[in-house]
């Protein structure tokens, strides 16, 4: 008689912990043929608010780390995904059974994280500069993280899409509240388990599974979220995000003008600070 396998409970990832939704709700994750393969937590407004609170608390110290340090931590995430390569492949295959495509998705995801990790201590050199002003002043512009960023993760590319958007947000020192792909939530939850064991400080990444239509308005209207990556939002959801953004002048990034890898995606979630100081005796 074959052994009965032990199944995983798919929970939220908030402040470094794995709670179920405070609402007590879950929803079924389906495979490509429409069969229920797991039940995942269905996050509520309160879960989202908790996630934002943890992201805010973690932001200053994450940003205060050196780029070198953030780069190493992101690289460590890539190491840990590589280590669980087959787990991720099988989870991508739940909704996209083509094994070759699934393997490519996972390798691309790992390589993209490594690519972004390397930017952590270089990005400011590309995007910042000394400004040659017409006067006796030292004048320098450099990027700083925008703060707490909400990410509506791409719906189809549940792993690669997610890590691409997430890496670009994290590398400059932002913290993130992610709304995972609604129909393909499993890779995001497993990614959370990787993050929890990869030296990423609690609260730096928070991952919510649930109904995007329910969660997006709370994210869009939240006064302590500074920017939103709307890459995975439908046109109607995008409009809702842009309307909510008005309350506190959030920055909204609509989609991938630059594809999965670009320092200009990092730039979209930074603020340029310019400092002047006189030169003189």
């Amino acid at each position: 008689m074959s052994r009965v396998d032990v199944r995983k409970t798919y929970k939220l990832y908030i402040g470094g912990e794995f709670p179920r939704s405070e609402s007590g709700r879950s929803y079924p994750a389906l495979d490509a043929r429409g069969r229920v393969v797991a039940r995942v937590a269905q996050a509520s407004r309160k879960d989202l608010r908790d996630a934002v609170r943890h992201a805010r608390n973690a932001q200053a110290s994450w940003a205060a780390r050196s780029g070198y340090n953030r780069g190493q931590i992101l690289y460590r995430v890539a190491e840990m995904i590589e280590d669980r390569f087959e787990t991720f492949v099988s989870q991508v295959q739940v909704t996209d059974p083509d094994r070759r495509r699934a393997r490519r998705e996972v390798t691309e995801a790992i390589d993209t994280i490594v690519w972004y990790a390397g930017w952590a201590d270089k990005f400011a050199q590309i995007y910042g500069n000394l400004n040659p002003v017409a006067g006796p002043f030292f004048n320098i512009s450099a990027p700083e993280p925008t703060g707490v960023v909400g990410i509506v993760a791409p719906q189809d590319s549940a792993l690669l899409g997610l890590v691409s958007r997430l890496s670009a947000v994290l590398v400059s020192g932002n913290t993130a509240v992610v709304i995972a792909s609604e129909s393909r939530p499993m890779p995001a939850v497993t990614l959370a388990e990787v993050l929890a064991t990869s030296d990423v400080p609690p609260g730096v990444v928070n991952i919510l599974t649930g109904h995007t239509d329910e969660l997006i308005p709370w994210l869009a209207d939240h006064m302590d979220v500074n920017a939103i990556d709307a890459a995975g939002a439908t046109p109607e959801q995008r409009r809702r995000i842009q309307e909510g953004a008005v309350h506190n002048v959030k920055r909204v990034v609509l989609d991938g003008e630059f594809g999965d890898r670009s320092p200009y995606v990092i730039a979209a979630f930074t603020e340029t600070k310019t400092v002047w100081h006189p030169k003189g005796l």
């Binding site: 400004n131 006067g135 310019t274 002047w276």
Partner: peptide, 29 residues
């Protein structure tokens, strides 16, 4: 948390120097 910081000076502007805000002071430079 400000887009321009003037140290030991104030209200200096130059075409070569980016200007613009954080938070509800707007976005873009």
């Amino acid at each position: 948390k400000a887009g321009v910081v003037w140290a030991n000076t104030y209200n200096k502007f130059d075409p070569a120097s980016p200007f613009g805000g954080y938070k509800e002071s707007g976005f873009g430079r």
